[in-house]
Amino acid sequence: MLTRLKELRDLEGKIVLITGASSGVGKLVAFEMATRGATLVLCARHLTELRKVAQKCKELSQHAAYVVQLDVSDSQMIDQQLIHVLRDIGSVDVLVNSAGFGLFEPFVELDMATVEKMFRVNVLGLMYVTQRIAQQMITVKRGQIFNIASVAGKIATPKSTAYSATKFAVVGFSNALRLELKPLGIQVTTVNPGPVETNFFKTADPSGNYFDRIKLLALSPEKVAHQIVNAVGYKRREINAPLYMELIHRGYELFPNFGDQLASSQLFNRK
Score class of each variant (00 low, 15 high):
residue 54 A to F: 13
residue 123 V to I: 09
residue 137 M to A: 05
residue 114 T to G: 12
residue 201 F to T: 02
residue 28 L to Y: 07
residue 60 L to Q: 09
residue 172 G to S: 12
residue 268 F to S: 04
residue 37 G to C: 05
residue 81 Q to V: 06
residue 182 K to T: 14
residue 84 H to F: 12
residue 64 A to G: 06
residue 123 V to P: 02
residue 46 H to N: 15
residue 174 S to D: 10
residue 29 V to L: 07
residue 221 P to V: 00
residue 178 R to Q: 14
residue 156 A to C: 11
residue 80 Q to Y: 07
residue 91 S to P: 09
residue 166 T to G: 02
residue 73 S to C: 01
residue 24 G to W: 02
residue 237 R to C: 15
residue 174 S to L: 10
residue 168 F to L: 06
residue 105 E to R: 15
residue 259 G to M: 07
residue 200 F to M: 02
residue 231 A to W: 00
residue 166 T to R: 00
residue 254 L to G: 05
residue 228 I to T: 02
residue 78 I to H: 01
residue 203 T to E: 13
residue 14 K to D: 00
residue 148 I to M: 02
residue 68 V to R: 05
residue 132 R to E: 06
residue 112 M to S: 11
residue 150 S to M: 04
residue 168 F to Q: 03
residue 81 Q to C: 05
residue 139 T to S: 13
residue 31 F to D: 09
residue 92 V to Y: 04
residue 153 G to L: 01
residue 115 V to R: 05
residue 139 T to K: 14
residue 242 P to T: 01
residue 1 M to T: 13
residue 265 S to Y: 02
residue 15 I to E: 04
residue 15 I to K: 10
residue 41 V to S: 07
residue 61 S to E: 06
residue 108 V to F: 15
residue 42 L to D: 09
residue 164 S to I: 04
residue 15 I to W: 05
residue 88 D to T: 07
residue 70 L to T: 00
residue 150 S to I: 05
residue 96 V to H: 01
residue 135 Q to C: 07
residue 185 G to C: 05
residue 73 S to P: 02
residue 181 L to M: 11
residue 96 V to I: 13
residue 172 G to I: 13
residue 200 F to D: 01
residue 167 K to C: 01
residue 241 A to E: 13
residue 158 P to D: 01
residue 15 I to N: 12
residue 151 V to E: 11
residue 60 L to W: 08
residue 152 A to L: 12
residue 7 E to F: 02
residue 231 A to N: 00
residue 81 Q to R: 08
residue 114 T to Y: 15
